[in-house]
Structures are given as structure tokens and as C-alpha cells.
Write a protein that binds this DNA or RNA. Structure first.
Lengths: 141, 141
DNA sequence: GAATGAAATTTAGCAGACTAAATGTATCAC
DNA sequence: GTGATACATTTAGTCTGCTAAATTTCATTC
């Protein structure tokens, strides 16, 4: 019995996150963004001029992944890169106007998807789920 | 407030599933498998000779993804493909001995990861989480 | 039975994600 | 200042995942 529940939770988690990814992907394509790029831009909306290593930490991914994402976003005119004047190893990433303009529309898409995910779940239940998911996060680090 | 919780849940979900993916990936590399291939093999352990379309449905992904996964698994000697005798469009996928031998070791890895994810969470809470996640699954289809 | 349409798979091309290895730059010790 | 080491980024190559379009085979309809 224990096993069945455990297994269901893992698989359920998997199905939810991959379906969410598909939904976000589809939704973000309307803004000419690929899924994941929104999260990189989000870090820049909080304040740009950030290094790629800082983006790595925020996105929780490896440097080559950031290199590719940054390249793609630059080619599409959402950001630009500038080498640091004091430390030649460092690339600093900045938003273009086109990149800044996406903040509001992306926020709307996020809200829509979140509401869809949690519809018909009460506030109490949301709090419980959040607490337990935070525990899971600590468990798997 | 509502927003904050919603957002936390979405992001938490994201962090958990990507961390889980990393953990599974690392764990499965010891068996010479890439993450996701275990799930394809699982379908074959239930019974092989399955078509690629059936694998699509099981993995909930698109045909080209299955083509690539099957190619990789075939090259590594875990499975082989045979064209259906009655319908020349269909490829049927079978396990090799090497593929069959992975069932137990993969099951152990799954159990390990699941236990890690849910440690220190009570049975009641697990049931609650499962119920709410099932609701989320229905929400986002 | 030839043409049309539907189904299963593949190809090409792109994105996120990874590892391993290379490059370029900075720092620090001697 | 030269050499060793550490750090930020890039390159090359692989995998899962996708879409769009091509291919092959089957089924239907006229």
C-alpha cells in the first residue's frame, strides 16, 4: 500500500510537470518565447546586468545551458551581452526594450496557468500542498 | 496572498520535478540508461511486442521522440525492432536479454528515489498530497 | 484498379538540459 | 614576472522533447 501511494505521487508529479511544461510552451509561443526563457527573463526583470553564473544559479542549470539560452534570446533581440570592464571573463546580460516589454504579458500567462492548475482546490488545501512540497524539496537536494 | 501561494506551488513543483529528474538521471547512468528510457522499458516489461504508437501513449510524448528513444535503446542493445507482418507501417518493439535484466535494478533505483522524496512525510499527508495532485492532473489536461 | 485519404514512422531542425573538454582571463605564490 | 591554479564562458556531443514536412503503407471510394 505504502508503495502504491509513493509511486503514484512520483508519477503524478511527473505527469503534472510535463503537462504544465507543454501548456506553458504553447502559451509562451504566442510571445515568441520558448519555455524556460521566461524564467531567465524574469531574473533580468528583477534587475539586469547580471552574469551568466548568476543566471545559472537562478535557473538551477549548468553553464552550457545558459550559454545556449542567452544566444537564442540575443538572436531574437530580447537581450544583449556586454563583457565586464573589470573582469574579462565575465559576460553581463541586459534587457533590450523588446525584452522589457514582455514582463506584463508573461505575468498574465503565468497567472492563467497557475489558476488552471489550482482551480477548485481550497485555500487550506493549497497551503497544505505547499507545505508538503517544501518538505519534498528539502528531501531531494 | 492567494497569488503568493499559487506561485509558490507552481515554482515548487517545477523545482521538485527538475531536481528529481537530475537525481534519476544520475542514478540511471549507473545502469547505462538515460532518464526517460526507464519508463519506455517499463512499458516493455509489462509485455513487449508493442508498437511505437503505443509507446507514445504510454510516455505521453510525440512520435519523433519515440523514434529517437527507440533508436538509442536499440543501439545500446536493450531492445530490437521488428516490422509487423500484417501491416508494413508498424514497428514492433521487443526486449533483448540485456533489456530484460534491467527490470530489477531499475525498480530498486525507483524505490530509492521515491523514499528519498517522501521521507518524513506521514501516510495521511501522502494520501492528501496524492488526492490533490490527482485533482491538479485533471485540471491541466 | 487507380486515386484519394488516413495512419505509422522517419527526417530535419530547433530548444532545454547534461557532461567533458577547451579557451581565455584573473589571481596568487614564489 | 613566471608558473600554477582557479574561474567564466564556450564548444562538441548526447539525450529528451517539440513541430513541420516527407515517406511508406494501408484502406476506401469511385
Amino acid at each position: 500500500m505504502t508503495d502504491a501511494v509513493d509511486c503514484d505521487i512520483r508519477q503524478s508529479l511527473d505527469r503534472i510537470s510535463s503537462q504544465m511544461r507543454r501548456n506553458y510552451s504553447e502559451s509562451l509561443r504566442e510571445l515568441n518565447l520558448y519555455v524556460g526563457q521566461d524564467n531567465l527573463l524574469y531574473r533580468l526583470w528583477l534587475g539586469d546586468g547580471v552574469t551568466q553564473m548568476q543566471l545559472c544559479e537562478h535557473l538551477k542549470c549548468e553553464p552550457p545551458t545558459v550559454t545556449n539560452m542567452v544566444k537564442s534570446l540575443e538572436q531574437n533581440g530580447f537581450i544583449y551581452r556586454k563583457r565586464d570592464v573589470d573582469d574579462g571573463r565575465i559576460m553581463r546580460i541586459f534587457l533590450t526594450d523588446k525584452g522589457k516589454e514582455l514582463e506584463k504579458p508573461v505575468e498574465i500567462k503565468w497567472r492563467e496557468q497557475q489558476e488552471k492548475l489550482l482551480q477548485s482546490i481550497s485555500m487550506e488545501d493549497r497551503l497544505i500542498v505547499r507545505k508538503l512540497m517544501q518538505q519534498m524539496e528539502r528531501n531531494i537536494v
